[in-house]
């Protein structure tokens, strides 16, 4: 009995080795991405593989890995062989450059528009009919309003949420560091749950019926409304929000080793093509070149007054000030 078990395990090992080996047979790319891009890249990968086959005759499979943006960046640092990373914020790709040197520090200059082929923003998702009458940021801190947002320590989307709120309070008339801080402190008091990732927060709001308003990526909000019930939710666009730029980059260390540099580069560049821009708009990301996308898709995006991450000093400074251990976020909860 023992012998046969060992036998079986050897067999299984061989099988396993076969599994690993077989992936080298054709060209593959691994796209390491964050949570809300699942639907976009699911469709885009198929489109790009078709395009690539036509252009070069090569069979290409693009594999996907999804998770919280920070977690994904850490996986790449620890050796996950992603040929390209498509993450929620530049800070996470900076970390890959800085901690592991897998791509040059100036990676963001290598592709147009800060290496972000599409953008998004932060909006409010409220329950149908907007029972708490939430119109703008000030309404979030009214008594009795519960706000759902993920944990900015672990979620990229949550950092955009947090910074959008901070930026709003900072830029409004009479705003200062102090008013921004007291506004965000007040806002966090209205947050009953801090899910570790953006998708978890959406699930809490949509599935578990928790809270009155969800701070969400615009694309996530659209998706929730269209996938989970137009009769249940509405989107509210605040007077001011942040321009979220989810960047993309080739991970040079991986592509050099695997010899996939050209394919990876083409994969990302194709995001800027009419096909890529159309798909981005279809999946509720704001295309960088709206003229290339489907006008009916573009028409869905309301006009928003944007602040940018540069207005807040850039990612490195914002991260250090707000989200690092002992930063403003920790201080708010330490009280």
């Amino acid at each position: 009995m023992k012998l046969s078990l060992i036998h079986r395990s050897l067999l299984a090992l061989a099988l396993g080795a076969g599994l690993i080996g077989s992936t080298h047979a054709q060209t593959t790319l691994l796209n390491v991405s964050y949570d809300p891009t699942r639907e976009l890249y699911h469709e885009y990968n198929a489109e790009f593989a078709r395009y690539w086959k036509e252009k070069t005759g090569e069979d290409l499979t693009v594999r996907q890995s999804h998770g919280g943006s920070g977690k994904q960046a850490r996986s790449v640092i620890d050796g996950l062989e992603g040929d390209v990373v498509t993450l929620a914020l530049a800070y996470d790709i900076d970390a890959i450059a800085e901690k592991a040197g897998k791509l040059p520090a100036d990676w963001q200059k290598r592709l147009p528009h800060n290496s972000a082929p599409y953008t998004s923003t932060i909006v409010f998702l409220v329950r149908k009919g907007n029972p708490k009458n939430i119109r703008d940021w000030e309404d979030l801190v009214k008594p009795g309003v519960e706000v759902i947002t993920p944990n900015p320590k672990t979620s990229g989307g949550a950092r955009w949420n947090y910074l959008a709120a901070w930026g709003y309070a900072l830029k409004k008339s009479g705003g200062s560091e102090e008013t921004a801080r007291s506004y965000v402190t007040e806002l966090l008091k209205h947050v009953p749950v801090l899910d570790p990732a953006a998708r978890g927060a959406t699930n809490s709001f949509v599935q578990r019926g928790l809270g009155d308003v969800l701070l969400a990526w615009e694309n996530e909000a659209f998706l929730s409304v269209n996938e989970l019930g137009p009769d249940k939710f509405e989107i509210v666009v605040p007077s001011v929000s942040i321009l979220a730029e989810p960047p993309v980059a080739v991970v040079d260390a991986v592509t050099n080793k695997r010899g996939t540099g050209k394919t990876a580069q083409a994969y990302l560049e194709y995001l800027y093509s009419p096909v890529g821009q159309k798909l981005a708009a279809k999946h509720y990301y704001r295309p960088r070149k709206p003229e290339l996308a489907d006008p009916t898709h573009v028409a869905r995006f309301p006009k928003v007054n944007f602040i940018t991450i540069e207005d807040l000093g850039g990612w490195q400074a914002a991260q250090k000030k707000h989200f690092a251990d002992g930063g403003v976020f920790d201080q708010i909860y330490a009280r």
């Binding site: 949570d35 996907q64 890995s65 996986s75």
Partner: peptide, 19 residues
């Protein structure tokens, strides 16, 4: 590493579908 179709076990697959 959560690579679909490659390094996902069944419990991880549950989480992915849920998300």
């Amino acid at each position: 590493g959560h690579i679909r179709g490659q390094t996902n076990t069944l419990p991880l697959h549950v989480e992915i579908l849920y998300n």
